[in-house]
Nucleic acid binder design. Structure first.
Lengths: 221, 221
DNA sequence: GCGGGTTTTCGCGGTCTCTTGATGACATTC
DNA sequence: GAATGTCATCAAGAGACCGCGAAAACCCGC
């Protein structure tokens, strides 16, 4: 899953980036509203972390922009404590959740996870497809009870596939959602990662190739 | 189904082309208004993706042109965020839908699919004719419950035929709607593709030949 | 710095897809 | 019955696509 962090305080950005990457997400950063707009145009995000106190930029406007495109991007607003009434307005404008500064990082993580699973499993942070089981809170993966040691990228690919079982997912789509903005769009790293993943899954045909279209995680039948 | 993308930003064009081709569509591209006009005259499209911010070209004029040709070509307008009032005018001029930049690709795909099925099934992305069933969102085809593995061209031909069950569809028409602008107009590849398709359908006479006129998908009786 | 694990690039080879061209079946016309 | 036109089938070549292995580049903790 890929996130955009819109925030201008460098220290906070660094902390967020490190923490979110560790939690298994691809993270892009925009330091101001214009560049946030641009990145939203160029890339595809699953969630946006949006600080309202942007220099010379209106966070609400940004929020409306994202929403008016009607896409399923989640938005978490971050606001200072003394601007609590922003909260109401933020939710009106289409934010899915809000956080008050200062906040504890685990709290942020929990909310991110909650939002990202809204259109999949639902309640828990565990996703199951067939014998595959992924715990997005603990970053643990298991197949038929045996636990698997996956690298971050392998984890990201599998996680994304598991949110769309039975759907054909193209290599570009995987690149969009698992890798970040510093990636060569013509890379072949997706192929290699999927290959490694298959090996670790002991190639039970769980990940099928649909030629010229992409990959598909076999649904339990 | 064949689409014309009218857009001048090269990067966006590349992204759109790759994504749309993968989604099973034939895609032509026009980088400016004059060449768009020409392609609209020469070829037949099922849908036009039209960016309003064309250099030295009036998108609305183009829209009117398409409409005055009177065919059932769908139009999706793409407009920048700060030109939201264009939306109203665009819909007045006959656009069927509009998208505000930035947009996520899946959103675009969803709208394309929605428009293309307007004059067929209606609500869902699934098309059924007799025992044939095609899921345009998942690119899956099945016959009497058994799923079929089709190549992109075979899929395209079958999809087109299934939108017009019982109608005679000429080889030229198939070439127009399933292949793109770089195709030799005197090719015999349609015949071969239909042949392969018949073989995969186990030749139950589902696709009839009407001599010197074309092919017809048997309607359920 | 060093070392181990991770990610990425590159190139080979196999497979699938598309297209062409040849051949033959069938129907129609003369 | 010969000539003609239309279409189906097959085989073969070109090109695209994908999997795999090896090596290089990168990252991070020590």
């Amino acid at each position: 899953m890929r996130l955009l962090v819109v925030e201008d305080e460098e220290d906070l950005v660094d902390a967020l980036r490190v923490g979110l990457v560790r939690a298994g997400y691809a993270v892009d950063v925009a330091y101001d509203a214009p560049s946030a707009h641009e990145k939203l145009q160029v890339n595809t995000y699953d969630l946006v972390l949006l600080d309202l106190n942007l220099p010379g930029g209106d966070g609400f406007q940004l929020c409306r922009t994202v929403r008016s495109a009607g896409q399923g991007v989640r938005i978490i607003m971050i606001t200072a404590r003394d601007r609590l009434d922003d909260r109401v307005r933020g939710l009106d404008e289409g934010a899915d959740d809000y956080l008050v500064k200062p906040f504890a990082f685990p709290e942020l993580l929990a909310r991110v996870r909650a939002l990202l699973r809204r259109d999949t499993g639902g309640g828990t942070s565990v996703l199951e497809v067939g014998g595959l089981r992924i715990d997005t809170a603990r970053l643990e993966v298991s197949l038929d009870g045996r636990s698997l040691a996956l690298t971050p990228k392998e984890y990201g690919v599998l996680h994304y596939l598991m949110t769309r079982p039975g759907h054909v997912v193209s290599a570009e789509e995987l690149l969009e959602h698992v890798w970040d903005e510093h990636t060569d769009p013509f890379t072949s790293t997706v192929r290699v990662t999927v290959g490694n993943l298959r090996r670790k899954l002991q190639e039970e045909g769980l990940i099928e190739t649909v030629i010229s279209r992409g990959y598909r995680l076999k649904e339990p039948s």
